[in-house]
Structure formats: structure tokens, C-alpha cells
Design a protein around this nucleic acid. Structure first.
Length: 609
DNA sequence: GCAAGGTC
């Protein structure tokens, strides 16, 4: 019997289906000489400190540096504290039984670093010695799966990938557990003051933005506005320059040749530019972009959106939601017309689906090279059932985006008119000529509607028009806004893009801080620790959060560069570099940060209790 | 009591 082990049930079932295996057993599917089983993500985790004899949180234990890490079954929180997850225990027993019977093991966990780790932890925990082969595919279509099985790789090809994953896991434990205990102990805090490679830079971003706003001194500046009349159609133009000094603005304001000052035609058209601009459709959604949109449109938290998506996924209405890719491959694209066909009955988007079903589809979101472990979120074509309003809203965001993404470009005409009247003014106008993808939701562009005219009259250079109104505007510079869940998710995703060191920036280019699957949980952790609170839709630090930030803000653990450095080294390990060197670096750093925090945290608790 | 990672 050959055993195939997937990362999650949905993939195990899909693989079984492709093989025509149909006998459903408890925790696996059998048929055609194979058994298809699965994990539920990580079933095993690094054992907590007490399992190495570090009982209680004590200064003399620090730094905790286990000689050899142990694995334990994933725990869940109950009213009696942390206990082994019974479902996980049961599935591990099933996997063990199957491995014992196996003639060959085929590893079909997700094609990536964590997928490799999920399997290897199970394999080593069960003390399995049988050889295994690796299925490595990035698309779940029948063809891709069959092709993958025809090209199974030797399991050992991925030993270095496992090494990098293993280092990631142990390093996070070493730095996180030690830093957390060091700070909590030295602060004399009753509550846990947790720190970690991801959560602490995230906290730092929220705190530094908050302080930046608090210390922001608004600057006054001035701008001039005029209103012109072209055969009864009024439009507005703004001075090209801003003025820091009121006198400067007033001097030019006085020179405006408006009707009130006795000029019949005081605005002279200098230039008129009109050009079409093509606006491509947005990409399909990945988890993060959908969480951001749901936060903006509906005020859902990242965690709520993830839960709603998980529900839709479990009822097979959408594809895998924890994806970091906004693209699909050509094979998946081949199935898109059929999906669009099924949307014809949708109450809001039916007409657009109708239109698209006979149109040439836009392929901007089709790029197999940009599909990572999973492709972008799509509907599955399953008929939707009656669902809660919140779930429906999320489902509609998924299918609405699909229609947008495969729609044609929106074509706008951008007009820019410059006018002279004492000084130079400019009027901008945008007219949508062909809505294209924008007809799906039919919403206004939120940015820059402030100073724009929806449409401008037809004018010619050299023409002179009456200035019917003028204004001297006093304005203030504004600070950046507080983070909300949408902007924080975006910031986590793009974190690392502005790191100065080119190599570190490169190492983080595909990752950012955290992963799509964990970012919602990171935000929840900061809330649970009472480091931050939600105020309306904003995320605002508490006194406690600010006190912790103050202690760690100049340390490496609070900077996203730390992740950049790790990613760079982990990639080197994946391509064969020494594991021992990296482990030695991490051990050194663990000692340093532990010592620093044991000193720096002294008396901290008094600042927030 | 604690990390970050995955998923039901």
C-alpha cells in the first residue's frame, strides 16, 4: 500500500479523486492501491520550556537553550489549561497506522518551507524510517496532479528545505520564549509581556505611528482657487504653487483678474491636454487583499474575514483562502469561463457575468510563475446556499473581484487645463469613457475626488474666460493616519520594502512580516496582551503597549530587518549552507537579547499598572 | 503564562 499524506483534508480528498480512490475511511480515503491521508496543518509543535526542566518562570533558567528540542502534540486551550487536541491525537494515530503498513510514502504537503516541516515533524515524531518521495506541485488541477505524480522527487532532495524550516521554527522558539520570559520577569509584571520576531515589530509599527501623530505639528499653508465660466459651465482651478507665507498668497490673490475686480474675461487658457488613460482591472484576491477590502467596506477584522472565508471554504464555495498569490495558472484559467457561467444568476453581478461570458477575458491575473503554494481565491462553481449576511458579503467580494479581474480595462479621459490669472492655475478632470471592470461594483474612486472636476468643458488654448469666483484657502498639513486593520495588513505585507540593506530587502521581497495565514492571529495576540485596543476601526497602543515599545524600540527584536536577516540566512541554508553556523548565531543573539531585557525591563510594570 | 507557523 502506498500512502499519500497531504497538508489538509481538502487536498487529500482532491488527490484521491484524481486517482479514482473512493473508499472513505476514518481519516483517509482508500482505493487503487493507495491510501490518501492528511494532517490539519501543523499537528506537532516544539515542546514548551517545562518539558526541558525549566519549571516556572525563573531568571536563573535564562536563557533557556535546550540541547535537543522535543516535539509534542498540538495543544488547545480548555478551562483546565492546555491539553492535547484529541482530534489531532486521533489523526496522528491514523497516520501512524498507515505509515506502519506503507510500502512507500508520498509526501503531498504544500510545496513550501512549512509544508515540508509539517510532514517531517510527523515523520520524525512517529519515528518512521520508511523512504518517502515528494510530490511538488503548485496547482491542484487534475492535469497538474497527474503530472506531479509522474514526476515524484526523491524525498532527500528536500532535506535542505527541511533544515531551513527547522531552523526557522527553533529560532522563533528560542528568541520568543526567552525574550518573553526575560521581559516579563524583569518587569515584575503579573501579566505576560510577550515578544517575538513578528509580533514585536508589528507592535513597534503601531506605536511609532501613534507617537508620530501625537507629536505632529501641523503646518499652515495657503492655496488659491478660482472658478471659471465657460458658456455657463463652471469649473474650478487651483493655484499650481502652495504658499507657506500668507502675505505671498495674498499678493497673488489680489492679482486674480476676477469679474468682481472688473475683468470680464480674466482667465486665459494656457494649455489644454486631454489624453485617454487605460486602467487595468485589479488582480484577483489573495487573503490579505480580501481582508483589507472587507475591513474597508464592512469593518470586518482580519480574524473575522478569515473565519468567514474558512466557512465558505469548508462548504466548498471558494478555493483555499490562506493564499498569498493573486494569480492563477493557465490550467486554472481554462476553467474560468465555466465559473463565470455559474455567476449569471447572481443578484448583483448576473448582468456582468452575462456580458463576460461572451467577451474576451482579461489575463492580467493569469501568470503561473506568480502562483506560489496556492493560487488566488476563486469561487468553485458550487451553487451557493442561503447564508448569513456577513458570509454573503465576503462571498460577493470574491465573485465580484473575479468578474472585475477578467473584465476589460477602464478607459478614462484625463484632462488638464492650465489657466493664467495673475498666477498659474490648473484644473484636472477625469471622465470615464468606458467603465470596463468598474461596471461590476460601480463605485467611485475614493482617492483625490476632492480637487477634481468630474468633467471639464471643451476649451482651447488662448481662450479667455470670466473668473466668477476666487478664494484664498488656508490649509494644514496632516499627519499620517493611525493604523487600522487594513492599513496594518498592507504594512505587514510590504514591510521590508524600505529596508536600506539591499540583500535584506531582497530576502524579504516575497514575504514581508508574518505570513498570510498568521497575520490575523498576530493582531489578535497584540489585542489579547492588551498592548493595543480597537478604537472605532483604528488600532491604538495602550499604556502597556507603549511601555513595552519604549524598552524594545531600539533593539533588533523590534525591527523587521531581523526577519530579513533570517530569511536571507534560511535561503542560504536551503541552498546548502551550514545549519550549525546559523544556530550559533541564533544562540548568541538569544543570550544577548535575554541579558538586555533582564536589565532593561526593571521597574517596567509600574508604568502601566 | 510564553513564539510563529499551519489548519479545523
Amino acid at each position: 500500500m502506498k500512502i499519500v499524506i497531504a497538508e489538509k483534508p481538502s487536498v487529500g480528498r482532491e488527490l484521491a479523486k484524481v486517482f479514482g480512490a473512493t473508499t472513505k475511511r476514518d481519516g483517509y480515503i482508500e482505493g487503487k492501491g493507495y491510501s490518501f491521508t492528511w494532517a490539519f496543518g501543523h499537528l506537532l509543535q516544539l515542546a514548551p520550556p517545562q518539558e526541558y526542566g525549566y519549571i516556572g518562570w525563573r531568571r536563573q533558567h535564562l536563557p533557556m537553550l535546550p540541547k535537543k528540542f522535543k516535539l509534542g502534540i498540538r495543544k488547545i486551550k480548555t478551562k483546565d489549561g492546555m491539553v492535547e487536541d484529541p482530534g489531532v491525537r486521533k489523526q496522528l494515530d491514523i497516520i501512524k497506522k498507515l505509515f506502519d503498513e506503507a510500502t512507500e510514502i508520498i509526501v503531498a504537503t504544500d510545496a513550501g518551507r512549512e509544508g515540508e516541516l509539517i510532514f517531517r515533524y510527523i515523520y520524525y515524531f512517529l519515528k518512521c524510517k520508511k523512504p518517502f518521495k515528494r510530490l511538488w506541485i503548485s496547482s491542484q488541477t487534475d492535469e497538474a496532479i497527474k503530472d506531479g505524480f509522474r514526476n515524484l522527487k526523491p524525498g532527500t532532495d528536500y532535506d535542505t528545505l527541511f533544515n531551513s524550516a527547522h531552523c526557522r521554527s527553533e529560532s522563533d522558539w528560542l528568541v520568543g520564549m526567552n525574550a518573553t520570559q526575560a521581559l516579563s520577569i524583569s518587569a515584575g509584571s503579573r501579566s505576560v509581556l510577550s515578544l517575538g520576531r513578528v509580533q514585536t515589530p508589528t507592535l513597534a509599527m503601531i506605536c511609532s505611528r501613534y507617537l508620530e501623530i501625537k507629536n505632529f505639528v501641523p503646518q499652515l499653508y495657503y492655496q488659491l482657487a478660482i472658478q471659471l465660466d465657460k458658456d455657463g459651465q463652471l469649473f474650478r482651478a487651483m493655484s499650481v504653487s502652495n504658499f507657506d507665507k500668507k502675505e505671498d498668497a495674498e499678493a497673488l490673490f489680489a492679482k486674480i483678474q476676477d469679474v468682481g475686480s472688473g475683468f470680464a474675461n480674466g482667465g486665459k487658457i494656457l494649455t489644454v491636454e486631454a489624453k485617454p488613460r487605460k486602467e487595468p482591472p485589479p488582480l484577483l484576491h489573495d487573503l490579505s487583499s480580501l481582508q483589507q477590502e472587507a475591513n474597508k467596506k464592512k469593518g470586518f477584522t482580519a480574524d473575522q474575514t478569515l473565519n468567514l472565508l474558512q466557512g465558505l471554504y469548508e462548504s466548498k464555495l471558494i478555493t483555499y483562502p490562506r493564499t498569498g498569490s493573486r494569480y492563477i495558472g493557465d490550467d486554472v484559467f481554462a476553467g474560468v469561463p465555466a465559473l463565470i457561467e455559474k455567476l449569471k444568476g447572481h443578484k448583483d453581478f448576473g448582468r456582468q457575468a452575462e456580458y463576460l461570458s461572451s467577451a474576451k477575458l482579461n489575463k492580467r491575473s493569469v501568470n503561473a510563475k506568480k502562483v506560489t503554494d496556492h493560487h488566488a481565491i476563486l469561487s468553485t462553481g458550487e451553487p451557493p446556499y442561503q447564508m448569513s449576511d456577513d458570509k454573503q458579503a465576503i462571498y460577493d467580494m470574491v465573485v465580484g473581484r473575479m468578474l472585475e479581474a477578467f473584465h476589460e480595462e477602464c478607459i478614462k479621459e484625463i484632462t488638464k487645463i492650465t489657466v493664467e490669472s495673475g498666477s498659474v492655475f490648473v484644473a484636472n478632470g477625469t471622465v470615464i469613457q468606458s467603465a470596463g471592470w468598474r461596471s461590476v461594483f460601480n463605485e467611485k474612486d475614493e482617492e483625490k475626488k476632492d480637487e477634481e472636476n468630474p468633467s471639464l468643458p471643451k476649451v482651447k488654448a488662448g481662450e479667455e474666460l470670466p473668473v466668477v469666483n476666487k478664494a484664498l484657502l488656508e490649509k494644514q498639513t496632516k499627519p499620517k493616519p493611525l493604523y487600522n486593520e487594513a492599513s496594518l495588513l498592507k504594512a505587514l505585507e510590504t514591510s521590508g520594502k524600505d529596508i536600506e540593506d539591499e540583500e535584506l530587502r531582497y530576502a524579504m521581497k516575497d514575504s514581508g512580516l508574518g505570513t498570510p495565514a498568521t497575520r490575523a492571529a498576530i493582531i489578535e495576540t497584540l489585542l489579547n496582551r492588551e498592548y493595543i485596543v480597537r478604537e472605532k476601526r483604528n488600532l491604538v497602543p495602550t499604556t502597556k503597549g507603549l511601555a513595552v515599545y519604549d524598552v524594545v524600540k531600539d533593539k533588533k527584536i523590534a525591527q523587521s530587518e531581523l526577519t530579513g536577516q533570517w530569511e536571507k540566512r534560511l535561503e542560504e541554508i536551503r541552498s546548502g549552507a551550514s545549519v550549525l553556523d546559523f544556530k550559533a548565531e541564533i544562540t548568541d543573539y538569544t543570550r544577548v537579547i535575554t541579558d538586555e531585557l533582564l536589565l532593561a525591563g526593571a521597574g517596567l510594570a509600574e508604568k502601566f499598572t
